[in-house]
Simulated scan of single mutants.
Amino acid sequence: MERTSLCVPIVILLMQCFPSLPVTVSTNKQKVEVHEFSDAVLSCIFRTERDQNPRIEWKKKGKDVSFVYFDGHFRGPFEERASIDGATVTLRKVTQEDAGEYRCEISAPFDSVNLGETNVTLRVLVPPNTPACEIPSAAVTGSAVQLRCRDQQSIPPATYAWYKDDQLMIPLRHANATYLINTQTGLLEFKAVAKEDSGRYSCRASNGVGKPTMCEGRHMTIEDVNVTAVVVAVVVICLVVLVCGCGGFLMHRNGFFTQGHRGRSFWISECHGAAHISSQNLNRTEDTSNVNYIPPPQEPQDFKHTQSFML
């Protein structure tokens, strides 16, 4: 009895010194970066208190949480191209649609703490595509000109370098620089172009993933302004406007536009008068014709008839 009474406190003391651990979940790598169309390993390591067969679930966060692995099977787009070892998942031939944040959940109903989770972020790296370049074909000396280069698909975002006649243009930082290059946005800006800025320009995009790419080069010509021709054209236009304005003013002042209106009224009244006179002349002609009218001779009447009438 004494030995038994001594063992109970010892067991209680050992349990207090070495408490049982609840379910714990962790990962070897919280941020995973892989190239597009390669395999991605999302690690999930767990340890349970008593439950030897916990439930394993993988979910992908987004606007809506979707299942990746549930009830012992992969779901959705991962059904045919993913595998699991313990709780670690391997996704094969990942694309940009697979990028995002994933969560590994371990449920152990028989543990004192029966749920644990860890998060893994997947980033899919994309090499630069051929950048879109905007290069004007011509410009006038002294004008401000901008050349643009952009690739919207590369991850991480690409940086840009400009070439003139296949020679790298070094970004200038001093105040008197004739051009400025923004390597982050791909903008090449000339404050005031000169004849020597004529040449063939191209742009290169790179982000450390895959090979850099370049857009097709395009020639930009800088032309001088013909000051004499511009001045002559302006003077001629001014003279034409002045002559037209003076001519219109003088014609209005001399009553040309008013006389024209009166002339039209006079012509209309004259036409009405002429029509009235013509009508009167026509009537007179008809009266004259009636006065000169001679009736045809009558045939002689029967003598006997007349005499009998008188009787």
Rank of each mutant, 00 (worst) to 15 (best):
A194G: 12
H252T: 04
R103T: 15
A138I: 03
A158L: 07
D64Y: 10
E299R: 14
T178K: 05
S43K: 09
L125A: 01
M1L: 03
A87E: 13
R103A: 14
L122K: 12
E196G: 02
L187N: 04
D51N: 08
L187Y: 00
D166M: 07
C203N: 03
V23E: 08
E196L: 06
R123D: 14
V235S: 00
V32L: 06
I268M: 13
N290T: 11
L250M: 14
K211P: 13
Y201D: 01
L147A: 11
F67D: 15
N119I: 06
L242Y: 00
C17S: 08
E196R: 01
P136C: 09
G263P: 02
C7N: 14
T221C: 06
S66H: 05
V145H: 05
G72W: 00
R173V: 08
A275L: 07
S112Y: 12
T118R: 10
G260Q: 14
S289P: 02
L180K: 06
P295F: 08
F70P: 01
E196V: 03
N28S: 05
R218E: 12
H219P: 02
V124T: 04
Q152Y: 02
Y163G: 09
F257V: 13
V209T: 10
E101M: 03
S107M: 10
A132I: 05
C238Y: 12
D85V: 06
R173Y: 01
E189H: 08
H276R: 15
T288S: 09
M214F: 10
V235L: 00
E134S: 15
P131Q: 10
T228D: 10
F18D: 08
T258L: 10
V124M: 00
F256K: 08
K29A: 00
V140K: 03
E134N: 13
A82F: 06
A175V: 15
Q52G: 14
S143G: 06
G255I: 09
G76P: 07
I155Q: 03
G248Y: 13
Y102G: 09
Q16H: 07
C271K: 09
F309N: 09
Y179E: 04
I277W: 04
R150A: 15
Q16K: 02
Q298P: 13
P109V: 00
F303G: 14
R204Q: 15
L125D: 02
L282R: 14
H252G: 05
A132L: 01
T4K: 13
F249P: 02
E80Y: 13
K60D: 04
N114E: 09
K93E: 12
D111H: 13
V94C: 00
A87P: 03
R173P: 00
